[in-house]
Nucleic acid binder design. Structure first.
Lengths: 176, 176
DNA sequence: CTTATCATGTAAGCGGTTACATGATTAC
DNA sequence: GTAATCATGTAACCGCTTACATGATAAG
């Protein structure tokens, strides 16, 4: 699933502007998806041209106008078709993992720095996701709750792995 | 770290051809990095032009010739500099997570299919990584072993999460 | 008066992948 | 004879990010 379909998915719930879509991604999906404005706006334009969305300009008081996009019937169909299509395998691009692999070329303290950073990052993610669960969890549909719990569990594991690695790294240092 | 530096890293150990580099990625790093030939060959060319590698053509019996690349002193420096530079945060692009988020628009059996697939994928990865550990683990430098253990532990967690989700999904189905 | 928020958009570039093209050798 | 392995390379395209450009209002 690319931005095209992710955006259609968000508009299944309710009509939104490009700006609101971006906010939603940041607040609720950032831990696994957060496209930039440079992607969102052109994509909305194309989706409209393709007949999957219709645009309405809403005038606001005290704020600039906004272009609100509503999903059309063919848009809904397009989105549901996407959910039925075969999905792409997970992609993990991890710089830390890469550096760990080449860890012989740096000293122990450098590795500990990397692992500690990973631990902090995971810890931060867990806290963030728990906050999202607290705020929106009660009114999230069941599968969405699963996706959130998945993120929480995976980051907790990451945290624990990083902690155990720190122990191994300290042990190793005291041996030499 | 991009392909450029990953390739330099592999050539720190020993001189290799483009084909051998690809094999190495597939056998030892595939779970977090596996660039295509269409990236590797042009990158080798550029790295040579930049003076980070030197090329030697090796004639073989019963096999086509191969271009073996050796890292130069400036190449080594470039790689070590890269390891000292700030690293990029992990990127997780997960189609399954995305689909779970939009799970209200499909039925329970579809979700179970996705989660079960994730479970199988994680199981497969764990087995694969354990095989790598068995084959090469004894002669891997300590930090490289950490990177491997990281992959194993993370995929095990993924496996467990998927299992617990299957239970939750079955419970939910029997309730309705 | 200056910073943050709201709001939309374009152009250039990056870091790849996919598909194509070629060709020799070995194993079944 | 035909499929798999070894070996190298190019061209077109993709999906996205970054940087740029604009401008209005609200809050401190």
């Amino acid at each position: 699933m690319k931005v095209r379909h992710a955006i259609l998915g968000l508009l299944m719930e309710e009509a939104r502007s490009g700006y609101e879509i971006k906010q939603y991604f940041e607040n609720r999906l950032a831990y696994f998806y957060d496209p930039s404005y440079g992607t969102i706006y052109p994509t909305l334009k194309i989706l409209e041209q393709d007949g999957f969305l219709s645009k309405t300009t809403v005038t606001q008081e005290g704020k600039p106008n906004k272009n609100v996009y509503t999903i059309t019937d063919t848009g809904i169909q397009e989105f549901l078709d996407c959910l039925k299509s075969p999905y792409e395998p997970d992609v993990v691009r991890s710089d830390v993992l890469m550096r760990l692999f080449f860890g012989t070329y740096v000293d122990n303290s450098q590795i500990m720095e990397w692992v500690e950073d990973t631990r902090l990052q995971a810890d931060h993610n867990v806290k963030n996701l728990l906050k999202i669960k607290e705020l929106y969890g009660y009114r999230m549909p069941f599968p969405q709750l699963l996706s959130l719990d998945y993120g929480i569990a995976l980051n907790r594991s990451k945290l624990e792995i990083a902690e155990s690695f720190m122990i191994r790294l300290h042990e190793r240092e005291s041996q030499s």
